[in-house]
């Protein structure tokens, strides 16, 4: 499949070019790009699970929170180096995802949406109340920090990795199963697809990467409280970024995250509540008018155009 490979190599080239950018200077752009890569990573994780299987996670902030706290607590308690704690944070998030996904992914999508939504809220409360472990509302100070450029590279690497995984899924065996599950789970089971296992694998993978990103972000912040890392707005942004770009597409979250983060950077955070009203309105409009997102809708339109030709 030469066309597909070309796409992959172009993507790789873009990633390498971005990786070289810090040597060219301009720290404002580096900072902005660092944040953008972080969100591309998160949105791509959300999209990998929710965009492809059609099971909506309304509590992904649970995994950024778990990641940040697992890494933070290990660093504070044992003094392990930051980079060693990152995969452990991913594992922590993966284990929770396994526990939540196992019962709920056999049921209707509504139960999964409900359980994840409640999970994030419940974990935040646990982090608030279990002061012996988390310092509760006082917050936790992370003793280790990387260089500014290291965050840039790590986020770029993780974002590129998740996007590459999505690309791989799209073009390989696994992707057909996910598409089949998305369309009709009963029919998928009837052609031999173990739908439960595949959904669970995808979900745990997605949570694993969210946990690692959350852990890195926790150390970048240097200090955080439960409502910083379990913030429902983290989930909201992941949803809206995937949705804007187009759920179930490789590039959707990349475009959606870049777009939204640029707008946010431009508007600034001072209009936070009003900003969320607008975000809500955008979600409603996208669902009603552009249900496939920007990328999805464009692809659809092109495909129709293409098909009309004899």
């Amino acid at each position: 499949m030469p066309v597909k490979r070309t796409g992959f190599f172009i993507g790789l080239l873009v990633a390498v070019l971005f990786a070289l950018l810090p040597f060219a200077g301009e720290s404002y752009y580096i900072q902005l790009l660092t944040v953008i890569f972080y969100w591309i990573g998160l949105a791509a994780c959300w999209n990998l699970m929710c965009g492809y299987t059609g099971y909506i996670d309304f509590g992904s902030a649970a995994y950024t929170g778990i990641g940040a706290y697992v890494a933070g607590i290990i660093m504070v308690r044992s003094g392990l180096p930051l980079l060693t704690t990152i995969p452990l944070a991913g594992l922590g998030a993966g284990v929770i995802a396994l526990a939540v996904g196992w019962p709920t992914l056999r049921l209707r999508g509504a139960y999964f949406a409900i359980a994840t939504f409640a999970l994030a809220e419940a974990l935040m409360q646990v982090a608030e109340e279990w002061t012996g472990l988390t310092e509760g509302g006082i917050g936790i100070t992370i003793p280790q920090r990387l260089e500014e450029f290291d965050y840039y590279w790590l986020y770029l690497f993780l974002a590129a990795l998740v996007v590459a995984i999505t690309w791989w899924v799209e073009h390989h065996k696994h992707g057909y199963a996910l598409k089949a599950i998305h369309e009709d789970e009963h029919a998928a089971a009837q052609v031999g697809i173990n739908t439960h296992t595949i959904k669970l694998k995808t979900y745990v993978t997605s949570a694993f990467f969210i946990g690692m990103l959350g852990a890195l972000e926790g150390s970048r912040l240097g200090y955080f409280k439960p409502d910083d890392v379990f913030d429902v707005h983290i989930t909201i942004k992941m949803v809206i970024m995937s949705l804007l770009g187009g759920m179930g597409t490789v590039l959707g979250p990349v475009i959606g995250a870049t777009f939204l983060q640029l707008i946010e950077d431009y508007l600034g955070a001072q209009f936070l509540n009003f900003y969320l009203v607008i975000i809500g309105a955008i979600i409603v409009c996208v669902i009603i008018f552009l249900p496939r997102g920007i990328v999805g809708s464009t692809i659809e339109r092109l495909r129709l155009k293409f098909r009309r030709q004899p």
Partner: peptide, 19 residues
């Protein structure tokens, strides 16, 4: 109930991949 988002070939393909 074919998987309408896939081509005819892909529908059959899925059976071979997983079944």
């Amino acid at each position: 109930q074919p998987f309408t988002g896939m081509s005819v070939l892909e529908n059959v393909l899925v059976g071979g991949l997983y079944g």
